[in-house]
Each structure stands twice: as structure tokens, then as C-alpha cells.
Amino acid sequence: MIEKANILNPDDLERVIKRISHEILERNRGSENLVIIGLRKRGVPLARRIADRIESFEEKKVDFGKLDISFYRDDFGMKIKSDVEKTEIGFDITDKNVILVDDVLFTGRTIRAAMDAIIDLGRPRSIQLVVLIDRGHRELPIRADYVGKNVPTSRNELVMVKLKETDGEDGVILLEKEEDVK
């Protein structure tokens, strides 16, 4: 892997999270009825940061949860799975506006699984999707409602999101698989 471009530095990331938090509040007219759910693994700290911003802008608590989609994947048996982590959603999502947060939107398959998982927990009024990076290459008719940055990529490239909570530092970089470099 070689580094091709620096997509977001720590300050950019901070600004993106602030902007998206404002957009969520604008579209939903405040935080009434909102719940924020992060997708394991890096969607979780991103979701927490957005929830923190929203709570400080609106000066009230919002429900926050973590979702693991292991049991809803469509690639089962392809031996690429990671360990199951616990889904922690300790509130009822029925009639709520669910803000689903993930780091990178790629094929859309993870989001399909996440929507199925959420609907098994209740019947939300809406599900809205936040992604830090949209890298294209969708295989399903899925789009994000809030995007940090659109990054056109080739399939040989890899978008690497780093967050303080999981990786010790903030930033997003674009990598390219070495064998494909001419």
C-alpha cells in the first residue's frame, strides 16, 4: 500500500462533523425525536462525536446506540468476517428519526444490512444516513443523506479513516494497492 492523497486532516474532520451536526438539526428541526446510531466499528466514535455536538448545540440529551451487523451480512461464508461485537441500543426506535452513522460508503451492502437490523428492532419514522466519505462504486440503490466528502476512487484504492478513539489519531487518507502501481 502506498499513500496517494491526504483527504482530511484533523481540522477538516472536526469541521465536517460540526457541519453535518448542523445539517441534521436543520433538516429535522431540532433534536426532538432523533436517535443517533453508530455502525461498528468506526461509525461508533463518529456517531458519538455528532451526538456530542448536537447535545451541546441543543442543550439536551439525545439517545445514542451502537449497531453490529454481523448477523445481517450477505457475504456469510466468505470467511472475511470479524468478531461479533455487541449491539447496544437501549431505547425504543419506533417512530424515531434514526441517524445512522458510518465512516465510508462503498458498495452499500453494509447499509442494507444495517437497515434490516434496525427494522428488526422497531419501526422508525425514518432512517437517515451519515457517512464521512462517499467513495462511489455502489452495488445497491442506496445513498447518503449527509456526506463529509465525496471522493471518487478506483477499486484498487482504499480509503483509510483513522479516529483518535480507535486509532490514536484523526485523519483520512487514500491508499493504493502496490501491485497495481505502474
Partner: peptide
């Protein structure tokens, strides 16, 4: 340990109204 940890998630699922996941 992996079996125990994975079972924790399934314990939660068995307490839900919809006690079923599509994975298998």
C-alpha cells in the same frame, strides 16, 4: 472465549420482540 462472547449477542437477540436474524 469467542463462543461465549458471541453468545452474549444472541442472548440479547432472544430477548427482542423479533427473535430471529437472517444470517443462516
Amino acid at each position: 472465549i469467542k463462543i461465549m462472547d458471541t453468545a452474549d449477542s444472541f442472548t440479547d437477540i432472544s430477548k427482542r420482540e423479533i427473535k430471529k436474524v437472517p444470517i443462516l
